[in-house]
Design a protein around this nucleic acid. Sequence first.
DNA 1: AGTGCAGTTGACTTT
DNA 2: TAAAGTCAACTGCAC
Length: 505
Amino acid sequence: MVLQLVWFKRDLRVQDHQPLQQALLRGPVLPLYIVEPDLWRQPDFSGRQWAFCRESLEHLREQLARLGQPLVVRSGDAVALLDQAHRRFGIERLWSHEETGNDWTYSRDRRVANWAKTHGIRWTQLPQFGVIRGLRQRKGWAQRWESRMAEPLISAPDGLPAITGLSPGPLPIAPAKGLASDWCPNRQVGGRSEGLQELESFLTERAPAYASSLSSPVTAFRGCSRLSAYLSWGCLSLREVVQSSRHEQGRSIRSFENRLHWHCHFIQKLEAQPAIEFEDFHPFMRGLRCADDERLAAWAEGRTGVPFVDACMRALQSHGWINFRMRAMLMSFASYHLWLPWRDSGLHLARQFVDYEPGIHWSQCQMQSGSTAINTVRIYNPIKQGQDHDLNGEFIRTWVPELHLVPDVYVHEPWKLSMAAQRKADLRLGFDYPLPIVEPVVAAKEAKQRIWAIRERSGFSAIANEIQQRHGSRRSGLPSTGQRRRRSRRDPVSSDSLQLTLNLS
DNA sequence: AGTGCAGTTGACTTT
DNA sequence: TAAAGTCAACTGCAC
């Protein structure tokens, strides 16, 4: 018997699954998922991600079983297992979705490609996002994204011919031996039905308030779409989310759609330049920051002594998710205030995110650390963020119960409490809750100076411009220094040539 | 009623 | 998807 092998990776669904559809046109299909212990031992992967993935696999297995051939699951090295399948059945062709993963999955894919070539097996990888493989420069990208998303959805197959004498194999509880336990009590549950429920409730109930609730962690857990993990693991296809959101109208849904666009925009950067997982976009930024295990641990465990930062980190630990603005603030605090290398803090965040998507993640880590050079430096002030998005401290009090009795005005800056006030709030600073490990205002100022000193060095902007050509969207472009015309308020539409000359000279 | 002035607001620039 | 600083316009009030 000769088979088509459909290799499921982070595309755990049968709907809108082009490789599955195409493979079935050519013959009986062996649907395979490979649990790769080495992958799950990588420092950016974690138990909570496996738990979500495993739930999604259970659902996928059921769906495929109903179609006639359950999902086959094997644990081990991908090349070894593919080779085994080939020797037993003969694989005519290998099918999968393109994956823009980390360095480990990229090199595994190269090994698989090699193996396939050696055995004369064609490996067809089809795109599932708006990411374009082999793209040299960014011009025209947005339009190609648009046409990808407009393609008709592919419905689930009618059925799969059963393969006799092939056991589905167990879905392991742990994907590798000796992995750290990862308690995440408020994690979303994986699987396509859960994803569809989330999509449905978002579009029919929650979408109108999306734009107004996505910034504050008080409202974001309900107000955001919460589809990210289902997209990362492929329970839902991006195209189906884009298309169903287009049936709705309103300001909020437009702003949501914008973010779906950004999803691929960021993955495209890692696709075009895999090194950004490890290496700063801009060479002038390399080796800038200082590794510090103690600082890293305090940040990662939510005990920096800055309440809003700690509250966000603890909420993330418990949910496996937090809203975008707070992710940016956490990263900004690690990179600027604590001056930690983004790779170290980024690995911790990667493990915390159930929705970890390497391309988005590493692009964002760099962007929030100022190392992309094509974005302006954004240093978040955690006290201001707290006052803006958790004015009365309800979020802080939920996650930092040590501050339960601290009055609202001090809850963002408990170090300003007098001894008497501490006693009254039943709080001993430095004992029940730490004093801040850095002075937020001073640390931010210092970081800002360091970063700007580098940005002003000669040769910096020339390289920044090259990065812009390769990775930037049109809007993110650096203003060309010295060429911008200043407009006075007094003279808002001045086109007076004399003034123009003066301004340019 | 008009003027002076401190304090506030908002647009815009710089870091 | 930032924050802080600057500057001019505006506001409310006293006289």
